[in-house]
């Protein structure tokens, strides 16, 4: 069994390939954004303040998921469950803050979609929206793990599921940081 230890778990490997795949999607979108930016009728977008809060939230959630993993490995089950739930809640909070951010646009009378909308803002919505869906996927994964953990009948100490979920969680976090810097930078 020692040989297996050295090898990366196939599911983890699969996740890394999936991350590459998701990255391609966002690379496609951001390069489309860059191409469009060089064209006429492009508006400089103002990142709403709310996005700073959401960024902080998702960063914090990355820390908590890592702590949860640590707790699991130390068999601190109560702590582990608590941190898991906190992470999922932070994920949901992130989405809420993102939505709030987009509502700020509406307050400024900037149209994201529909007649009179500008592609620069539509891009922001489309790209962050797709990212949000990926965060939601992560929340679902964490929720499933959390439910399993809270349900005492299936007691499992395997850290692999959480390790995979945590890697994914860090990935969506990093992806958002990239997008956030991208949007701010591209001004």
């Amino acid at each position: 069994m020692s040989e297996q230890k050295r090898k990366i778990h196939p599911h983890k490997f699969t996740l890394w390939v999936a991350i590459g795949s998701i990255l391609m999607m966002f690379a496609g979108l951001t390069s489309a954004y860059i191409v469009k930016r060089s064209q006429a009728s492009w508006l400089m977008i103002e990142i709403p303040v709310m996005f700073w809060y959401s960024t902080a939230t998702i960063l914090a959630s990355s820390v908590t998921v890592q702590l949860a993993l640590k707790a699991l490995k130390k068999r601190e089950m109560i702590n582990y469950k608590r941190l898991l739930v906190v992470t999922a809640v932070l994920g949901v909070l992130f989405i809420v803050l993102q939505v709030a951010g987009f509502r700020q646009f509406a307050a400024q009378d900037i149209r994201l979609v529909g007649a009179g909308s500008n592609a620069s803002y539509s891009f922001l919505l489309a790209i962050s929206g797709l990212h949000g869906i990926h965060v939601l996927g992560g929340v679902v994964a964490l929720a499933v793990i959390a439910i399993r953990a809270l349900n005492s009948s299936t007691r499992s100490y395997s850290s692999v599921p959480l390790e995979i979920a945590a890697t994914y969680w860090h990935f969506v976090d990093a992806l958002w940081i990239y997008l956030f810097i991208f949007f701010t930078w591209m001004k």
Binding site: S21, S117, S122
Partner: peptide, 22 residues
């Protein structure tokens, strides 16, 4: 390569149904 098509298709769905101008 498929994810890139997906991103293109998503933008097309936006243009079709949400009135954006990608």
């Amino acid at each position: 390569s498929f994810p890139v098509l997906l991103s293109g298709a998503v933008l097309l769905l936006f243009d079709r149904n949400l009135g954006t101008s990608f």
